[in-house]
Design a binder for these strands. Structure first.
Length: 245
RNA sequence: AAUAGUGG
């Protein structure tokens, strides 16, 4: 089964759906034990290109092939639906999974929260995070980052910063993605000073800036006519072994 | 990890 699954992952990257179906059928005819794993890979591949109906069909075939869908398979379907902005379908999947005895996990919630934020429904995303905690599911770095990005998208910079504080207080560490999102927003808003402050916080907390971090800052500083600071940042970037693009 | 997050 591992060989088949590895092969299916490769085919998924190239979007070769028919080949994947043939392999799944081949697994059955050659009595290789089936699990939700290959179906989940397929659901995800369909989701990546927006084919939610096909993702739904792949999901349905899990039981069709005598397996029981697990939380990961539900998550893949839910994510495909959320990414396609099919919020109603996703919430339906969310309900189905619980009726089916699958407990939503941090990936389930984060996936939904991200989808809501992308759909411009941060308020709902924040409510969902509260629900999540009420259900004893602890938000992680990805969850908080999704909320922060949603708030930034909704132009709520102050709220995003206070969420960053909440995150830190709750013992959850922001990572490079968290900081890059914030830095980028403040640079776009013409507030490189705030971005620099966050950059200092980032490094003082041991979070490593990457090429994107420096790129955002260099660009932001130049845009704000702070050429000397920008050049300074470029030097730091090179010292750290990041290649400017 | 077979499923979730950063480019203007």
């Amino acid at each position: 089964p591992f060989t088949y699954c590895a092969l299916i992952e490769i085919l998924a990257r190239s979007g070769d759906f028919d080949q994947i179906w043939s392999l799944i059928h081949a697994m059955r005819t050659s009595h290789v034990s089936l699990s939700p794993v290959p179906f989940t890979t397929l659901i995800n591949a369909y989701g990546n290109v927006g084919l939610t109906d096909d993702a739904q069909r792949a999901f349905a075939s899990i039981s069709g092939f005598g397996c029981k869908p697990n939380v990961v398979a539900y998550n893949a379907l839910l994510n495909a639906q959320m990414k396609a902005q099919k919020t109603v379908d996703a919430f339906d999947t969310f309900k189905c999974m619980r009726d089916d005895g699958c407990t939503p996990d941090v990936v389930t919630y984060t996936s939904m929260i991200t989808g809501l934020c992308n759909a411009g429904e941060v308020e709902k995303a924040v409510e969902l995070m509260k629900d999540m905690m009420r259900n004893d599911c602890t938000p992680n770095t990805w969850t908080f980052t999704a909320i922060i990005q949603g708030l930034l998208k909704a132009e709520q910079g102050e709220e995003a910063l206070s969420t960053l504080d909440t995150m830190l207080e709750s013992g959850c560490s922001p990572d490079t993605v968290t900081y890059n999102s914030l830095l980028q927003w403040f640079c776009w808003k013409g507030k490189p000073d705030k971005a620099l402050e966050l950059f200092e916080q980032m490094t003082s907390k041991g979070c490593n800036p990457d090429t994107l971090t420096y790129g955002i800052l260099v660009h932001g500083l130049f845009k704000a006519s702070k050429a000397e600071l920008a050049i300074d940042m470029l030097k730091r970037m090179i010292e750290k072994g990041c290649n400017p693009d």
